[in-house]
Simulated assay, not measured.
Amino acid sequence: MGERYEETECMRYAGSMAQLADARLMALEEGNGRGDRVIAFRNGSGLAFTVSPDRGMDLVDCSFGGIPLVFRSQTGYSAGARHEASGKGWLRNWQGGLMTTAGLRNVGAANGEFGLHGRISNLAAEDVGIRRGWEGGRYRLEASGTLRECAMFGEHLELCRTISTGLGENVIRLHDRVTNRSCREDYLQILYHCNLGYPFASPELVFDVEAHEVIPRDAEAAAGLAGWDRLDEPRADYREQCFYHRLPAGPDGMAGIAVENPALGIRLRIEYSAGTLPNFVQWKNCLSGGYALGLEPTNASVLGRAADIGNGTARKIQPGESVEFDLIFRFEHRLPVRP
Rank of each mutant, 00 (worst) to 15 (best):
I172Q: 06
N195K: 02
D218H: 00
E185H: 04
F153S: 10
S164Q: 09
L205N: 00
P216W: 01
V171K: 13
S202F: 08
L205P: 01
E213T: 13
F153E: 03
A211C: 04
G224C: 13
L174F: 00
A151Y: 07
L225A: 07
E213Y: 01
L157P: 10
L174C: 15
C183I: 14
A236Q: 11
D232W: 06
Y192I: 12
A223L: 14
L205H: 03
L174Q: 09
E155G: 10
A226L: 11
V171S: 10
H175G: 06
A211N: 09
S202M: 10
L205C: 02
D229W: 09
S182C: 05
P234E: 11
F200M: 11
I190R: 01
V206R: 14
P199A: 10
D208T: 14
D237L: 12
T165E: 04
G166K: 09
H175P: 03
H175M: 08
R230F: 10
L191E: 13
M152L: 12
P234H: 10
G154D: 13
L174A: 01
R173V: 08
D237E: 14
A211T: 11
M152S: 10
I172D: 02
E185L: 07
H175A: 15
D229R: 12
M152Y: 02
C183Q: 13
M152R: 08
D218G: 06
D218R: 02
D232C: 12
R184Q: 08
Y187A: 10
R230E: 13
D237Y: 09
G166D: 12
L225D: 05
